[in-house]
Design a protein around this nucleic acid. Structure first.
Length: 406
DNA sequence: AGGTATTCACATGAAACTATTCTCTGAGTTAGG
DNA sequence: TAACTCAGAGAATAGTTTCATGTGAATACCTGT
């Protein structure tokens, strides 16, 4: 009986026309053949990098722009073209792209170099070797290979934040010691004031050239969306005005094209799941909701236990809209710790945990001074009630506090 | 009343410590010749 | 004697703890009118 229903369901599913033609096109790592509204930046970057084809060293480049403005895309696109030409003309050129934000990959000096060496086919253990030795290996390999290296460091700000700017200094300085090879660095960052915190020497050598990516406006996003939608969806599956609405949503948030594409994709998925023949504007709203909920839920579920306990303490003491202060949270947190057998951390540490939770956007923590009564953080919950309840449930489950909690 | 000085309750920083994972090295051990 | 094993020294890293210092404004305390 039940099986029959399921078979029917699958048959039905197969018979239905899918809305998507190719969903991959809406994925964020998809590289389109032509990039809209970035001609100027592409040209600029190409101009800067072109000397490499003659075997000269191009200037280092620094690329800024908010998230979803096509920085990474442009850099990859341009360098791809460049290296294919170089290959044709038999010029020695290697382009390495590294995303410094990825944990365990390239977020420290050691790991960055190790990752570079991996690109050259040398396997470097994740730990155990002295950093300078790894440097030496890198050095000799590069010198031996005798070619120009273009190094794209995506989200350098993350790297510098953790590893310090000495690393960049070393990298830029390597050039003067290399005889047969050259390194060009393309730094990508979405933090506009990031270079101000850099050592002046590093700053001047890293950002010999700078390219700024302005945010897309609504029209731009609209173009990008419709371009991709045409490839990704079957004709006639998008409701009139959907793209415009979607673009509007994204433009409201500093022109983030990635957001817009994700929104469109999720809306499509929702529509498909509901068995609709068209993606309607209503799906966009639902999609926006779902993206946010998924993000937060995922985030919360993947936090370490200590963070979860802290978060639970915050959520449970944050009744209504008025804020709570660090001290209250800490004592409640301590209580949870004894209940769950967790070793309580110091208040100092919890202070940092709270700051990190704030960064993640789950809570809002603001440092305020209450005059005679001290200085502390005033913390409020940063998500809406529907999500909040869900988070609480997850936390209670994760911490095994189901039975004895309000 | 007006002006300082205190004081609270943490925030913020820096350094040191702990634990884990991993390599390298050299001493001791083993097995085969 | 060569190959193997294994403990110990070092490294890198993440997550904390310890110690030290900073801080903004509501109060407490003076002062002179």
């Amino acid at each position: 009986m039940k099986e029959k229903g399921l078979v029917d369901f699958f048959e039905n599913y197969l018979q239905k026309q899918p809305l998507f033609k190719d969903k991959l096109i809406l994925q964020s790592n998809y590289t389109p053949e032509n990039i809209a509204h970035r001609d100027e930046q592409i040209q600029l970057l190409a101009n800067i990098l072109a000397p490499v084809l003659r075997g000269e060293k191009p200037s280092n480049v620094f690329i800024y722009g908010k998230t979803g403005t096509g920085k990474t895309l442009t850099a990859r696109y341009t360098t791809n073209q460049l290296s294919s030409i170089a290959k044709q003309k038999d010029r020695p050129l290697k382009v390495i792209y590294l995303n410094c934000k990825l944990k365990k990959l390239a977020d420290t000096e050691y790991r960055l170099i190790a990752q570079l060496l991996r690109e050259y086919g040398r396997d470097i253990p994740p730990t155990g070797l002295p950093t300078d030795e790894v440097y030496q290996i890198f050095f000799t390999i590069i010198e031996k290979e005798k070619h120009n290296l273009i190094l794209i460091l995506d989200e350098v700000d993350q790297l510098i934040g953790k590893a310090g700017d000495e690393l960049l200094y070393n990298l830029t300085r390597i050039n003067s010691e290399l005889k047969n090879a050259q390194i060009t660095i393309i730094g990508i960052s979405n933090d506009l004031v990031f270079t101000d915190t850099l050592d002046p020497r590093v700053k001047s050598s890293l950002s010999e050239e700078e390219i700024v990516f302005p945010p897309y406006n609504a029209i731009h996003i609209q173009n990008i969306l419709s371009q991709r939608a045409q490839l990704a969806f079957r004709p006639g599956t998008l409701e009139e005005g959907l793209i415009e609405k979607c673009a509007g949503f994204a433009a409201r948030e500093h022109g983030d094209a990635r957001r817009a594409l994700e929104l469109l994709r999720v809306a499509g998925e929702l529509a498909e799941r509901e068995g609709e023949a068209k993606v309607a504007i209503a799906h966009l709203d639902k999609a926006e909701d779902k993206i946010e909920r998924d993000r937060v839920v995922d985030l919360v579920a993947n936090q370490p236990k200590q963070y979860q306990a802290t978060l639970l303490a915050i959520l449970n003491s944050c009744q209504g809209t008025k804020g709570v202060i660090t001290g209250e949270i800490y004592s409640l947190y301590e209580k949870y710790c004894t209940e769950t057998g967790l070793r309580p951390l110091t208040q100092r540490r919890i202070s940092d945990v709270i700051a990190e939770l704030d960064m993640l956007g789950i809570i809002n923590a603001k440092v305020i001074s209450k005059g005679r009564y001290g200085r502390t953080r005033e913390i409020t919950v940063g998500v809406n009630d529907a999500i909040l309840q869900k988070i609480k449930n997850i936390l209670l489950e994760e911490l095994g506090l189901w039975n004895n909690s309000s």
